[in-house]
Design a protein around this nucleic acid. Sequence first.
RNA 1: GUGGGUGUAGUUCAGUUGGUUAGAAUGCUAGAUUGUGAUUCUGGAGGUCGUGGGUUCGAGCCCCAUCACUCACCCCA
Length: 457
Amino acid sequence: MEKVSLPKGTRDFGPAQMAKRQFIFDSIRKVFQRYGFQPLETPAMENLSTLTGKYGEEGDQLLFKILNSGDYLKDVDSVKLATKDSRLITNDISEKGLRYDLTVPFARYVVTNRHEITFPFKRYQIQPVWRADRPQKGRYREFYQCDADVVGTDSLVCEAEIILMIKDAFKILGINDYIVKINHRGILSGLAEILNASAKEGSLFVAIDKLDKIGEEKVKEELRARGFDGDLSSLFETLNFKGNTKQKIDFLGQKFTSSEKGKKGLSDLTEVLSLLAGFGATDDHVEFDVALARGLSYYTGCIFEVKIGNVSIGSVSGGGRYDNLTAVFDAKEKSSGVGFSFGIDRLYDAMEELNIFPKDARASSTVLVAHLDEQSFRHSLKIVQGLRENEISCEVYPEPAKVKKQLEYADKKKIPFVVVIGSEEIRTETVTLKKMETGNQLTLSFPELVTAMQLYK
RNA sequence: GUGGGUGUAGUUCAGUUGGUUAGAAUGCUAGAUUGUGAUUCUGGAGGUCGUGGGUUCGAGCCCCAUCACUCACCCCA
């Protein structure tokens, strides 16, 4: 057994995986830029005070904390230390933590740089985040998020554009079977009002969010366990209502006659769909799901979640509108924001499961130049350089070796073409080009080789 | 934090009620083929059976502990 290993929940990405990952990164980056978002990067670590308290009690426990440098125990109160309760001394020995998501560092950035920022500010950010929870399928301790957020406008155009960006990205990635679920925090509040349960919204939402996963009976059980003992039939009548988005909105309109929050939610949704139509887009793949609940501690408006069909992976993207994210850093700062995030690692897992990565998601050379002896090795250097001048990625086998060995190398690295140089080729000023896939080979002049390779590209 | 499952060759896994020298596939390596890979044939290397203890004449197999990995719950991308 190897003694060296990786921390739990972290992974290496070899060349084959990186080619696929970069295909996803590039596709998403392209979409973000197409919609006018600008790149931003923030440090891997933030002050712990920036991070704590933003993700709920559960989230605080999942933060990776960084031990202070130096003799960090020296000044810790000896009474506290004697309790052996590590939570009591966390703040004394750690003042930095790894970021848990990209939204909070973004809010911190907006507050720190507000004088330089032109609002509405649209930024995208593709960086790793870290969570100290127990890894399982589709869940890692280090993973990438690809966030796009707009801060400083209430316009529902942003919501509509989020839907458009998700559709665009999935089109480029070749994912056809997916659902963009949309709901509104106001609609959830409306449901709670009808049940006279506004005081314990949180546990209501967490329970109904599991509806499609565990079923109606289990949700009822959980609700009763959480103290909802009244009549639940109206709630489930609403949750189970079948129909298209417009029918759902009409149906809820009758329920929400007395709920201002509910009505606001419905009018926002209606407007988002209307704007979507204004862009000339359909609402294909978009589903209004009354049971969708997420990010309860900070979302205030529309909420989104994206699921891919026929894969065992949870949601691959999510987002929503938060009215007061920056207010947690500065009470005077109340910029409304809206954004969403792609989970790259889950997209990767889903695409791998569906086997839909393009065949040419490859990052190796197009051509390997092989040689037979010292003289042809020298000659092959000129060939390689000539190919590079024509922007064809290629490499020369770096030492004398049997042709067999050089071809095996090309085969293993999935290099599609090999140019063989020997005394015959030098004498006639030609090259022998072999296509690895078929084994066919032909004799070409150098300009013909360049043309052939450019056509292939 | 709670609960299941699995640890045997580089990798994926067999291994009978406990019985002598622990196997296969694949990969690696050398050759058949001194200008041709992937396909074919022949040979070779590679294992402290996760670790520590116990039961037994005898343990890969049974018992205990421990570690690692993995799946699920809570929560989340």
